[in-house]
């Protein structure tokens, strides 16, 4: 079954995505419905609790009445989820049934800088939900920059890629000695790709083979040129 919800993006101050998420969460689950006892005007959070109170309400006397709904939490059950992909800074995604719910959820929340018009397509959201493995696209011989940890800012050459652990074994370029350093692939940014020597060789091999094929073929234009001379 396809859920009948849409995903909308909101813009936040960079670095405040988590606090915005927490505040929206509190706005949705923090407030409950308010029911009132018709006799003593006391507030309760559910219809059941109010009915239980009404049985033993001191001001009841011989009067009859029903629990009265004072206010209803508009967001509960309508805002389904909040997504913070930290790869995209300054944006938070909210899954709701209607755009109006986004408006209510973010009203009064600090660090919200606005909404993004239109829905976010599910394919775009999938990219954040199932991020590609970090080591993908990095191969041996590439030059990377280490972006976190004790070697932050250093450039290094990739010696080996450990795809299972998503780790890279690097050799620092500025170091006079070759010390292998193990770094998680998330903490390496690719700077320069290694020249693909094997690919070029393979392509050349194909070409020579193709040429010889053409000379072998009698109907080919190239096959007749030597005879004409």
């Amino acid at each position: 079954m396809e859920p009948s919800t849409s995903i909308y993006a909101i813009r936040t101050t960079i670095g405040q995505e988590r606090s915005v998420t927490d505040l929206v969460t509190t706005a949705v689950i923090g407030e409950s419905d308010v029911w009132e006892c018709p006799f003593c005007r006391e507030d309760f959070s559910s219809e059941k609790a109010t009915k239980q109170h009404m049985k033993s309400c001191k001001k009841k006397g011989k009067k009859k009445g029903e629990p009265k709904l004072i206010s209803k939490n508009q967001l509960k059950g309508r805002v389904k989820s909040i997504l913070v992909p930290e790869t995209l800074r300054g944006y938070v995604f909210i899954e709701t049934t209607e755009f109006r719910d986004v408006e209510i959820a973010i009203s009064g929340v600090p660090h919200v800088r606005g909404r993004v018009g239109g829905k976010v397509s599910l394919e775009e959201i999938d990219r954040f939900l199932a991020p590609p493995p970090a080591a993908e696209g990095i191969s041996e011989g590439d030059v990377v920059e280490i972006i976190s940890g004790p070697f932050k800012g250093e450039r290094a050459k990739v010696v080996r890629v450990d795809t299972g652990k998503e780790e890279l074994i690097l050799e620092l370029l500025d170091s006079p000695y070759t010390i292998p350093v193990r770094v998680h692939a998330d903490f390496a940014k690719i700077v320069e790709r290694a020249e693909r020597v094997e690919v070029v060789e393979a392509a050349e091999g194909d070409e020579t083979k193709a040429e010889s094929d053409e000379l072998d073929d009698e109907d080919s234009f190239w096959a007749h040129t030597p005879d004409d001379d």
Binding site: I29, K76, G77, K80, S81, I82, L83, P85, P131
Partner: peptide
């Protein structure tokens, strides 16, 4: 860890 997802409870 990276990235956060908050799944909110429904009415029920």
């Amino acid at each position: 860890y990276t990235g956060i997802v908050v799944i909110l409870p429904g009415r029920d």
